[in-house]
């Protein structure tokens, strides 16, 4: 995956783990479909949902965004973590382990901040 976010900024393994369990199902090209995804109307419905999630933010395609958009996306990640709008309630309802603990949230916030800074530096040099 040449455009994966890990190619653009450093993603420590603990951060990677959180992203994978809480974000990647809807925001990457590596969706882990649950068993009921094979049934209609869940299948149609989830695909729809995942498509809009990926259109909004796709960690696997992060490198294809313009640098301006990368900054905006990181800022939006920060905002949605802060106000708790992500992961969606409808997702955590089933994926209980996607509910972020305080520590996990902090870890992600720090990572977002560091990523923003490192991208900033890259663009000014």
């Amino acid at each position: 995956m040449p455009n994966d976010i890990s190619k653009i900024v450093s993603v420590p393994s603990d951060v990677q783990g959180i992203l994978k369990k809480a974000c990647y199902d809807c925001h990457s090209n590596n969706t882990e479909y649950p068993w009921y995804a094979n049934m209609q109307p869940m299948h149609w419905f989830m695909n729809n949902h995942i498509q809009s999630g990926k259109a909004e933010l796709n960690f696997s395609e992060f490198g294809s965004y313009t640098s301006r958009r990368q900054q905006s996306k990181l800022r939006s990640i920060e905002n949605s973590l802060k106000d708790g709008s992500m992961p969606l309630n409808s997702y955590t309802l089933i994926h209980r382990n996607a509910i972020l603990t305080k520590t996990e949230k902090l870890l992600l916030m720090n990572w977002v901040q560091n990523s923003k800074d490192s991208l900033n530096k890259k663009n000014f040099n």
């Binding site: 009921y36 869940m42 419905f45 729809n48 949902h49 969606l88 409808s90 997702y91 309802l93 089933i94």
Partner: peptide
């Protein structure tokens, strides 16, 4: 609970779209 939660999420997302 699984059925309930599926229905819930359906409603939730229908509202979004």
């Amino acid at each position: 609970t699984l059925i309930y939660s599926s229905v819930f999420s359906l409603l939730f997302l229908a509202a979004c779209s």
